[in-house]
Write a protein that binds this DNA or RNA. Structure first.
Length: 374
DNA sequence: AAATCTCTCAACCGCCGCTGT
DNA sequence: GACAGCGGCGGTTGAGAGATT
């Protein structure tokens, strides 16, 4: 039985016809909405009240904005979701002309995937643990012992742009998990399509992986967003998440706030305005990933067939991996895995680095500071 | 050109909280 | 306080369009 032919208790279900839409519009324009239970009968519709309310709220309402989500709207959704979770109606109240259903769909079909590919857990908005552990290994192996790979503008820092590493490693892990896509996603309560996402990753031949490495161009917006999320997850000001959440929920006005240029951040998804800094980052990253050392580590990762255990957690042997790939590293580098592993977030160095860069804190409502408190 | 696969999003379902009796 | 009715919300489904083989 298809949606279009479904009938129950004499009530029609499935897609609405233009005639039904017109009847509903005419009735509401004349009498207003509300009393959804009795509305369909009065309007001459063979639909349940719920169906009418949904049709009106999600499609027929005159103030509904159609079309693609803007980058500003996307930013807002991510920021609001990081605080509110799946409170789609509350999120929608802050996006003029957007419905909760529309936002929910957009989240599930676009943003969630995008965040996942960036190495961010879309549920917690924190870096994926599997990616973090790999990043830790690579960071330790590559950069602590290879000063030439440090970014010029970060010279002297042992921890370089980890979010770029996260992004690459997320890609790599996605390829890696193709043989067992459940590995990475089981613990995230993902939508069915998310497994498809991983299954759709191309088979990782060496040539394709080389291409991945050669063409990997970190996007500054991704980097900024990741860094912001990392900062938030480690910022002591954000510890009381519940308090922040309730403050925000109280603060959010049911009257939608429009997003002006001044309270939104520059659109960093675009590749168009690549700054010198980005070029420097990209070229340095290219240098890193084309290094023999990186290839060595990377090949070891690929050869490791037991990357994740049944719980979806990384399950590789750090010492064997490092000993097989970092023969030129100093003993202190090898031992440093215990002190620099990201398991609970980041190192002291990174807290310092990311904590000062709340680059993408979205100004959700006037009066809220960066921690979400008044 | 046809078959198959993938993605999107409108619509449904079930649950929950609020309100009135 | 208990119950019923209703509206609202979030999770899920599946038709159909578009992309790929």
């Amino acid at each position: 039985m298809t949606k279009s032919s479904t009938e129950k208790n004499g009530l029609k279900k499935g897609p609405w016809t233009p005639e039904e839409d017109q009847k509903l519009i005419d009735y509401i324009q004349k009498h207003g909405h509300g009393k959804w239970r009795t509305l369909p009968k009065n309007a001459g519709l063979r639909r349940c009240g719920k169906s009418c309310r949904l049709r009106w709220a999600n499609y027929l309402r005159p103030d509904i904005k159609r079309g693609r989500f803007s980058f500003e709207e996307e930013e807002a959704i991510i920021q609001l979701h990081s605080v509110l979770g799946n409170k789609w109606s509350t999120i929608a109240a802050n996006l003029p002309g957007r419905t909760d259903n529309e936002i929910k769909n957009y989240w599930n079909t676009h943003i969630k995937k995008k965040l996942f590919k960036m190495g961010i857990d879309p549920v917690t908005h924190t870096p994926r643990l599997d990616v973090l552990q790999l990043a830790s290994i690579l960071n330790t192996s590559l950069f602590n012992s290879s000063p030439q790979f440090n970014y010029p503008f970060l010279s002297g820092r042992s921890m370089i742009n980890s979010s770029q590493l996260l992004s690459l490693l997320s890609t790599l892990l996605s390829c890696q998990s193709r043989n067992n896509p459940d590995n990475v996603l089981n613990h995230n309560n993902f939508h069915q399509n998310d497994n498809q996402l991983l299954q759709n990753q191309p088979q990782c031949t060496q040539m394709q992986l080389d291409d991945t490495l050669q063409t990997f161009q970190p996007n500054q917006r991704q980097v900024s967003l990741q860094e912001n999320l990392i900062a938030k997850s480690n910022n002591p000001l954000n510890v009381d998440h519940q308090l922040m959440k309730s403050k925000l929920e109280n603060q959010i006005s049911p009257v939608a706030t429009s997003f002006t240029h001044q309270n939104t951040l520059p659109n960093l998804w675009h590749y168009d305005n690549i700054s010198d800094l980005q070029i420097a980052q990209s070229s340095s990253t290219m240098q890193c990933f084309s290094s023999p050392k990186f290839n060595s580590i990377f090949n070891s990762l690929l050869e490791n067939q037991n990357l994740c255990n049944n719980e979806g957690m990384p399950n590789f042997n750090l010492s064997s991996l490092l000993s097989s790939t970092t023969s030129s590293s100093s003993p202190s580098t090898l031992n440093s895995s215990s002190s620099t592993t990201f398991v609970n977030g980041t190192t002291e160095d990174e807290r310092d680095t990311y904590g000062s860069r709340n680059m993408l804190m979205y100004n959700i409502s006037n009066g809220l500071n960066d921690s979400g408190l008044l």
